[in-house]
């Protein structure tokens, strides 16, 4: 086994557990400090997924829940990008899962009762596996903003939830993809749990006219960075390269 560990997570890049303006965090945040571990085999390894786990249609949210010949309602978009590590290397063959509200801001979930209608042709989830260059894409509709009770008049900016594995349990990450130009981003208490503007900007997908499908779908580019791995001298040769 290659024994190299992953770079320490920069906790100043991530939201702290307790962020009182996002009220739900108050009772769900540990008060004791995390115990910092050197990585053992338990942290360096992680689950592996393959193309037999998913179907090709799974990354097309416009069609993967639609009746034959129909499609989801909303602004048709491509969300695409690369999964990289902190060394700038592509993370190939890793599972990316996405979920989102429909174009009206309604989730298909038994615990969502927002008055915007369910789209009968939109499920709201997709998944894909990155190619050898770490590249992935989803085809979907742009999700709508929706109200939520944090303060009474909070509105979530349009967003797509993303779940990424990498190759190690220590790289496991869930984040949210926002969209360039949305005025709700700067007002969102969940966005503002992130301590730096640079960190917030890294979650805003850029309009990417080069990747549109002409006369069909507009495109946004969203790159994802997972923790990088050390290169360490072991038995007189470099590991992890």
């Amino acid at each position: 086994m290659s024994q190299a560990e992953f770079y320490q997570r920069d906790r100043e890049r991530h939201p702290p557990a307790l962020t009182p303006d996002y009220k739900t965090s108050v009772a769900r945040s540990p008060r004791n400090a995390l115990i910092s571990l050197q990585q053992s085999v338990s942290e360096i390894t992680g689950p592996v997924f393959g193309h037999n786990d998913i179907d090709p249609i799974d990354n097309d949210l416009i069609h993967n829940y639609a009746k034959a010949g129909e499609s989801a309602i909303g602004e048709r978009i491509i969300v695409h990008g690369r999964v990289l590590d902190e060394n700038g290397r592509p993370v190939a063959g890793t599972l990316v899962e996405a979920w989102q509200a429909n174009a009206g801001g309604r989730y298909r979930h038994k615990k969502d009762t927002y008055l915007a209608p369910i789209d009968p042709n939109f499920g709201g989830c997709g998944r894909t596996i990155t190619d050898e260059n770490g590249y992935y894409f989803f085809r979907t509709v742009k999700p709508g903003a929706y109200p939520w009770r944090n303060w009474v008049n909070n509105w979530r900016p349009a967003h797509i939830h993303m779940s990424i594995f990498g190759t190690s349990f220590s790289q496991r990450l869930i984040t949210q993809c926002y969209f360039e130009g949305d005025p709700l981003i700067a007002k969102c208490p969940i966005v503002k749990t992130i301590p730096t503007q640079d960190g917030i900007d890294s979650l805003v997908a850029a309009l990417d006219l080069n990747a549109t499908i002409p006369l069909d779908s507009i495109a946004y580019k969203f790159d994802i960075v997972l923790r990088g791995r050390r290169s360490t001298l072991f038995e007189n040769r470099l590991e992890g390269n």
């Binding site: 991530h14 965090s25 590590d85 939830h161 779940s163 990450l173 984040t175 949210q176 749990t193 992130i194």
Partner: peptide
């Protein structure tokens, strides 16, 4: 080096 993408909550509809 690139910087890791920040985490966000999984939310209620995970």
């Amino acid at each position: 080096y690139l910087k890791e993408t920040p985490s966000q909550t999984a939310g209620p509809y995970v």
